[in-house]
């Protein structure tokens, strides 16, 4: 099993590429890989209970671990997260780099 860390820095309201990145996470998971989606910067705006959050919650249900950078959340005053999304420190990125995860940034 290959481990992937997908880092999403963009807001789905800002970029139509974002849903494709979520689809990539889903497809990698369905192919039997271990997948973490880490939301950072404006990417965390999708973690609020909102329309785009449904796609993230669905990813969580499909076995993708969905995390949101706690610093980015604090910067934007986001305290409540949609179902299936957890706050995490930026250390998660280094954890994955150390472990040899394939790490992609969008």
């Amino acid at each position: 099993m290959i481990s992937y860390l997908l880092i999403e820095s963009r807001d789905p309201f800002e970029s139509n590429d974002v849903p494709y990145y979520y689809e990539l996470a889903k497809a990698l998971r369905e192919a039997g890989n271990e997948v973490t989606l880490f939301l950072v910067q404006n990417g965390v705006l999708a973690a609020r209970p909102s329309a785009p959050a449904a796609a993230l919650s669905a990813l969580g249900q499909s076995g993708v671990k969905v995390l949101a950078d706690e610093f980015s959340l604090r910067e934007r005053g986001i305290a409540r997260l949609a179902e299936g999304i957890a706050a995490a420190a930026i250390d998660v990125v280094v954890d994955h780099l150390e472990a040899g995860s394939r790490t992609l940034w969008h």
Partner: peptide, 19 residues
Amino acid sequence: SANLTTAFRILDVAARRGH
């Protein structure tokens, strides 16, 4: 770009871990 803020945060963690 906020990318650099995030990049320096990642680099800081890696530096603190002695990599």
